[in-house]
């Protein structure tokens, strides 16, 4: 089991999915390995939910192959694997007439999880005091918390969370990510969808950026920066009044974004950064400070979402 960490848990091979004439996913290849935390990022309608439904076996691909835990998940053919699986749908719905503890007990029975875990989970997500109330009276946030609780029943090996933090207040959001992290440390693999890249930035091993049913980028954060090849910006502080003089001497081969009285803003691609810095340092006393501003995550995201991926 030394290579357990590298074992592929989910693999999608040339998967296409269309509903009638509407193409939802086209030619998606994804491999997710055991222990990874993968975040699917994209606008609404990019195909994130459909991707999850395919992995969960709730729907079938129009063409291509989906494999989860070594089997075809489609239509409950591999029942046993569901025991190690937790899912939180995008807008989770419960039996409104039941109370939270009743619903959780029902799901626990289906998963073969001991009843006492239900109380613990309700405690964890902060629903213990409201657990006897009808779910019909619950707010959006409370439903979401109950959704998390049911997804965590039986400490699943595979977690699918579709927009998990919508409707959660910031403190609960943080608590939620702590829970995910704890499950992660225990060896769980998770697939999380989100439209906010910043929020999940620190938690994920890998991002998969989806756009209109296509996978436009995939990789860890630093890999995404490289793939995007966005320009690095330099903020150069100079002796007051000398900015235009410096700009002139840098010449036309340098991209100068803005020139102030004592400040210049330059940009260059990552590979040209060091030569440019050396040239700036040649100005000696003229330059008083230098700041390197890497591209922001939002910019990387926007690059993939708006720019031409090819």
């Amino acid at each position: 089991m030394t290579d357990a960490i590298n074992q592929s848990v989910i693999s999608l091979d040339a998967v296409n999915k269309s509903y009638g004439r509407e193409v939802v996913l086209s030619d998606v290849d994804i491999t997710i390995r055991s222990g990874e935390c993968v975040v699917l990022v994209g606008h609404n309608g990019a195909g994130k939910t459909t991707l999850m439904k395919l992995m969960l076996g709730l729907t079938r691909p129009s063409s291509g192959k989906v494999e989860v835990l070594g089997g075809n998940p489609a239509f409950g053919t591999a029942l046993a694997q569901h025991k190690t699986l937790g899912y939180l749908p995008e807008s989770v719905a419960f039996y409104e007439a039941m109370s939270a503890s009743e619903v959780l007990a029902f799901y626990a029975r289906l998963k073969g999880v001991e009843h006492r875990h239900c109380e613990e989970l309700l405690e964890t997500v902060g629903l213990a005091s409201a657990s006897r109330r009808r779910i019909g009276t619950y707010s959006k946030g409370m439903r979401q918390r109950l959704g998390l609780a049911q997804a965590m029943l039986g400490s699943p090996q595979l977690l699918f969370l579709d927009e998990p933090t919508t409707g959660l207040d910031p403190s609960l959001r943080r608590q939620f990510y702590e829970l995910i992290e704890a499950m992660h440390k225990a060896g769980a693999t998770s697939v999380i969808s989100s439209h906010a890249l910043n929020e999940v930035e620190a938690r994920a091993n890998r991002f998969i950026i989806m756009k209109a049913g296509k996978m436009v980028a995939s990789g860890a954060l630093d890999e995404l920066y490289q793939q995007a090849a966005l320009p690095v910006r330099l903020e150069v502080s100079v002796i007051p009044g000398q900015a235009s003089h410096v700009a002139e001497r840098l010449g036309s081969e340098t991209a100068i974004d803005d020139v102030g009285d004592n400040r210049l803003y330059l940009s260059c691609i990552n590979g040209d950064k060091m030569p440019l810095i050396r040239r700036i340092s040649d100005f000696g006393e003229l330059v008083s400070d230098l700041q390197i501003i890497p591209p922001k995550l939002d910019e990387v995201y926007n690059h993939f979402m708006n720019g031409d991926p090819s």
């Binding site: 969960l56 709730l58 239509f75 409950g76 029942l79 046993a80 569901h82 025991k83 699986l85 899912y87 749908p89 807008s91 989770v92 719905a93 419960f94 039996y95 799901y107 289906l110 998963k111 073969g112 049911q150 699918f160």
Partner: peptide
């Protein structure tokens, strides 16, 4: 939408 969740549990259709 309750069916969506139910079918991800270890029950056959």
């Amino acid at each position: 939408g309750t069916m969506l969740l139910l079918l991800t549990y270890p029950v056959a259709r």
